[in-house]
Amino acid sequence: MTTGTEKRKEKKVEYWKWPESRSTTPGIDWTKASIITCGIDVGSVSSQAVIMTDGKLFAYSSRRTGYNSPESARNALNWALEGTGMKPEDIHYTVGTGYGRVNVPFAQRAITEIACHARGANYLYGPSVRTILDVGGQDCKVIRCDERGKVETFLMNDKCAAGTGRGMEIIADLLSVPVQDIGRLSFEVDEEPPPVSSTCTIFAKAEATGLLESGWPLNRVLAAYCRAMAHRIGELILRAGVAKDFAMTGGMAKNEGVVKRLAKELNIDILPPSFDTQIAGAVGAALFAKVLAEKEQKK
């Protein structure tokens, strides 16, 4: 006879874990570049490193932050440099941004993500962008900018988890759906359901559970949640005002379930991204690094 409690071994899958990525732009010889700058965006959930040679995107990496900001900043940089032959010493100027910007040990300067996202979106989407929506891990920012990427007005919601990437991750974990599949699955429904009534992450979680119990299929619950998220973000945007062109940055821009519903809600076109939207902040930081390095050289 066996005594004591038996524990069933579980294979733990963490559904919130979105895939990390890195890339190098082919055809650039960095050894010939006159100025090499780096932007590090240490967010609450993800960390990005972007290397720019003469103001052109050379390499980037995007990773999950974890609990140690300085370490994540270093890891992101090392991964971005991997296989390029470049060493951290070759970088002339580094700017840190994001939630953990003061925790980037090798950065010469820290700049807020507001300024960096405007600059980054201006570079990545082109100068026609006037409104930028950045939905990050634990906040949501609306930025209006001019044709040079200079901020004209901004507002940020970092008090409430509703309408943030973290809210989506929590739903992913609750419903055992990989977070990057939520958008696609949320459209596989017979008809669009009404949004979940509460946008509060905690109450929405309870409501989602309730809907499943009442017999809703999984995809329908996802659709209802995405719709509520789009509505919540949309309300914030209206306060700042919408101007064309409208672009999205941050991880939520990859979730078509929210992006398409938001476009419908605000009755606008959202520029389709042709790159990893999560790197926008770090791109802006690297661009500022170039300006600041040149300013220092002149002195």
Partner: peptide
């Protein structure tokens, strides 16, 4: 630049 500091929650919008 119009810098909005504050937040929006379930009870309203609070920005300076």
């Amino acid at each position: 630049m119009l810098a909005n500091y504050g937040y929006k929650d379930g009870s309203g919008e609070y920005f300076i």
